[in-house]
Design a protein around this nucleic acid. Structure first.
Length: 292
DNA sequence: TCCCAGGTAGATC
DNA sequence: GATCTACATGGG
């Protein structure tokens, strides 16, 4: 349910949504916190200022249009999906996830742009989240489009495929990409050549798509899984990073366990919504420092 | 100074 | 196959 008020959209009674959980849970990197439950973000070339009032159960989308709301933001925030049903499914798979889901009940898996997701998670390897955000910001400022806001200030969209195609490895290094610079270059080459594209990947099975993504240098199991989950809409994947490894070892294995084994176990345990289970666990476990 | 970070490729056995 | 290490950069 939403209303339009000048150039603002007001969403009322949205269930299972907390803008802080959505943005801070580690799935996206191109946003800035302004205040409590008050953020600005850029996605699909558009700027959005979004603020949530939990006591009134209202979400305010500032400086946007009804067209963008209907065509971009509803899908981006996954607002049409029934998360109550997803949560029930996960808890039925293992009741011990109840805590994590209750604690982080406002998470939604964003439907992000494929290319931005791929590049962002190539950058993410061996980096902490604030550093990833910094590099994404560097690339956007240098190679993305300017977005002028009504107050005259400027933001920058994440560079498109075409824009990054004009960037050399050395220039990528200047944006602090480090050893990931040639990886990004290889990803851009393969996507630009039409060898690996969103439409091709979406026609594939999850295993085919993962293998295809892993043909890119610097894309392994984890980066591929994050791209599948956050950028391509596959739900039955389970990215295992250092945190998920610790959390799952702590919950289920009680000893050092290979990532591949954890991934297989989780896919079997959580079924078609393994990706969602992973995100509740990741955000909850990381905040609690589980296994550290 | 050393260790770690939403990992992966390449070398080595 | 399975294990080991280098890799840029920044922060604790």
């Amino acid at each position: 349910m939403y209303q339009i008020d000048n150039n603002n959209i007001v969403i009322s009674e949205q269930a299972d949504f907390d803008i802080e959980d959505v943005l801070e849970c580690g799935q996206c990197f191109h946003f800035t916190k302004l205040q409590d439950k008050d953020y600005e973000l850029i996605a699909f070339g558009k700027y959005l200022h979004v603020k949530q009032d939990l006591s009134e159960n209202k979400i305010y989308l500032y400086d946007t249009t009804e067209d963008d709301f209907l065509n971009i933001w509803i899908k981006y925030f996954d607002l049409e999906k029934d998360y109550a049903q997803i949560k029930e499914h996960i808890i039925n798979c293992d009741d011990r996830l109840r805590n994590a889901i209750e604690e982080k009940k406002g998470i939604r898996i964003l439907k992000q742009d494929f290319f931005e997701t791929l590049i962002s998670f190539i950058i993410s390897q061996n980096k902490q989240i604030p550093h990833i955000k910094a590099i994404v910001h560097n690339l956007s400022m240098k190679y993305g489009d300017e977005i002028k806001l009504s107050d005259g200030t400027i933001r920058y969209s994440f560079p498109t495929l075409e824009q990054l195609n004009n960037v050399t490895v050395d220039e990528l290094r200047e944006c602090k990409c480090g050893f990931r610079a040639p990886y990004i270059r290889d990803a851009v080459d393969k996507v630009y050549a039409g060898e690996i594209t969103e439409s091709i990947l979406k026609t594939m099975s999850v295993d085919e798509a993962r293998n295809k993504l892993m043909e890119i240098k610097g894309v392994g199991e984890k980066v591929a899984n994050c791209t599948l989950l956050f950028g391509l809409g596959f739900n039955n994947v389970f990215p295992v990073d250092v945190w998920m490894k610790r959390i799952m070892e702590n919950m289920y294995f009680g000893e050092d366990t290979k990532k591949e084994i954890i991934e297989k176990f989780a896919l079997k345990k959580y079924g078609e919504y393994a990706g969602y289970a992973q995100q509740y666990l990741f955000f909850y476990g990381r905040e609690k420092g589980i296994g550290k």
